[in-house]
Simulated scan of single mutants.
Amino acid sequence: MSEQTLQGLIGKTALGDRAAFASLYDETSAKLFGVCLRILKDRAQAEDAMQEVYVRIWRRAGSFRAGQASAMAWLVTIARNQSIDMIRSKQPASIEFDDAPEIADEAPDPEAQAALSAEGRRIDACLKELDADRAAAVVGAYVEGSSYQELADRNGVPLNTMRTWLRRSLIKLRECLNR
């Protein structure tokens, strides 16, 4: 159907011509249904949207301006907007700020952060007093979560030797931190 024919049908629809509206429906419903179906991805919802689309076209036909947009673009825009409105209407309403539940901030407060930072510096200083391989093993086991076997393999020592390193290193760390 030509652009001029569509414009004429929309113009007659604006004047309340039901026959022109029926012709407009016959000529454009397949394309507009495709638009609704593509957006909504559900045939039943697309059919519901189509009803609203043609109600809007009937009511708004007088607002169509031939020079501003093509007739089909105007019709597709109505179908697209109706489909998007249907999706939005199904989304849960947002909660008002005053009705929102109170959620505690899980992050430590500034005082706790300062204490943790100071404690971290003390631990780092005590780790530096250990041999480098033993300090790396402690960090690997208790910070990174490596298994004793992984640490033993990484350092090329037997498993029992790694356990001894870690036990003795923890004792030295505790002594250092208690000073």
Rank of each mutant, 00 (worst) to 15 (best):
Q4T: 14
T5E: 10
L9W: 15
G11A: 12
G11V: 08
A14L: 04
L15S: 08
L15M: 12
L15A: 10
G16A: 07
D17K: 01
A20W: 06
A20C: 10
S23M: 15
Y25W: 10
E27F: 13
S29T: 03
A30E: 11
F33L: 13
V35E: 05
C36Y: 09
L37W: 13
D42G: 00
A46F: 08
E47C: 10
Q51V: 10
E52M: 03
V53M: 02
Y54F: 15
I57G: 00
R60D: 09
A61N: 01
A61L: 03
R65W: 01
Q68K: 12
S70E: 06
A71G: 02
M72G: 03
M72S: 08
W74M: 10
L75T: 09
L75R: 07
V76H: 07
T77P: 02
T77M: 13
R80I: 10
S83V: 07
S83T: 11
I84A: 02
I84T: 11
I84D: 01
I84F: 03
D85W: 15
M86S: 05
I87R: 12
R88G: 00
R88L: 08
S89D: 06
A93I: 12
A93R: 12
F97H: 10
D99H: 06
P101S: 02
P101K: 09
A104Q: 13
D105G: 02
E106A: 12
D109Q: 06
A115D: 04
A115V: 14
L116F: 15
S117E: 14
G120H: 09
R122I: 05
I123P: 00
A125M: 11
C126R: 11
L127V: 12
K128D: 07
A132I: 14
R134G: 00
A136F: 10
A137E: 03
V138P: 04
A141R: 14
Y142W: 15
V143M: 14
G145Y: 15
S147A: 00
Y148Q: 04
Q149H: 07
G156L: 05
V157K: 09
V157D: 04
N160E: 04
T161W: 13
T161G: 00
W165S: 02
W165T: 08
R168H: 04
S169Q: 04
L170T: 05
L173Q: 04
R174T: 07
C176K: 06
N178I: 11
